[in-house]
Computed example of a mutant assay.
Amino acid sequence: MYQEKIITPPSGYLTLVLFLALLGGSFYGFATENFVAAGIVMLINLFLVLPGLIINNPNEAKVLTLFGKYVGTVKTDGFFWVNPLTTKKKVSLKARNLNGHQIKVNDKLGNPIEIAAVVVWQIKETAMAMFAVEDYLQYVTIQSEAAVRHLANIFPYDNFEDEEATITLKDGAEKVSSLLEGELSERLSRAGIEVIEARISHLAYAQEIASAMLQRQQATAVIAARKLIVEGAVGMVEMALERLSAKNIVELDEERKAAMVSNLLVVLCGDRNVQPVVNTGTLYS
């Protein structure tokens, strides 16, 4: 792997003064009709002095190569002069956002889901970013998508079908993001790229099963609500029978108790209003 070599070139201000002086000398040569000397000075000025001047902005780097060989990287911001024969490639060191596209993939249980992620990254090793991969921007995009696909394949969307799952894509946001960040860091380290943050930005069932999964979730919610209602109704019936027996309000045989329990459960567990019927006779008529 290419090892980054940071260099600090000489200041460009002295070279700029030299450039202006040579430019004035060439003009003077033309004015005194010394065309050969003036032309040579002008060529030196334009092809050897001026091309070596570079401006490096904050959070920016210049990667220098000379005849196919890596020379070094300029990371210090300022005005410098470098070998005019070197090739200078600008690399931004600022943090960047990658808003991944929504992709369709199967989760651990084989359910098709739609998932996307947001990745914040920046270049740390300029030499690796320029020479280890063909195009580091495309490399980040493809590897991020591959990491998201792999993450979706090893975890279920939720634990409706896999109740033993401790981590799910839906409920384990922090853990899933941490795993995604770790896998991306490993994948992108080859290109000298540091992953600052990675999070799931979109997660949903695929369109073809979304309605079925919604019905399943609604059914699960209804069952949970019914279970709570039944537990509460049984407790109320039990309390009613105990209070009636403790205060000796009425004595009921087993058949009457069963009828009372049945009626109370119908009233308490029903999802519609019950119309009461008043018995004007005896309990046994």
Rank of each mutant, 00 (worst) to 15 (best):
M1Y: 10
L268I: 12
I6C: 06
S185D: 03
N97K: 08
R187S: 07
L66T: 15
V230G: 01
A117V: 11
V195H: 08
D158K: 10
L85D: 12
T282E: 04
P58Q: 11
I115H: 09
F19R: 09
M130F: 03
L23G: 04
A132F: 00
D253N: 02
A246E: 12
I223R: 13
L214G: 10
N45F: 10
A127M: 08
F19S: 10
E125G: 09
T8K: 15
K104C: 02
A204V: 09
A147H: 06
A224S: 05
S189D: 15
G12H: 09
V140C: 14
N83W: 04
I200K: 08
R190S: 15
E183H: 08
V74H: 00
K257E: 09
A259L: 13
F47V: 01
V74A: 06
I40A: 08
A191Y: 00
V278Q: 10
T87Y: 12
F35Y: 10
L98M: 03
M239V: 11
M1V: 08
L214E: 05
L180D: 04
E163G: 11
V91N: 05
V274C: 07
R96C: 09
S245Q: 15
S262L: 01
L188A: 01
Q143S: 06
I249R: 01
F155E: 09
A129Y: 02
I154Q: 00
H202E: 07
K5H: 15
V250A: 04
V278P: 03
G232S: 00
E242C: 12
V17R: 14
M1G: 11
G72M: 04
A204T: 11
N106G: 07
Q217V: 08
N273E: 12
V17C: 02
I209M: 06
L14P: 15
E255I: 06
A116P: 15
M213P: 09
N111E: 14
Q3P: 04
M260I: 02
G110D: 07
G281Q: 07
V74T: 08
I167L: 09
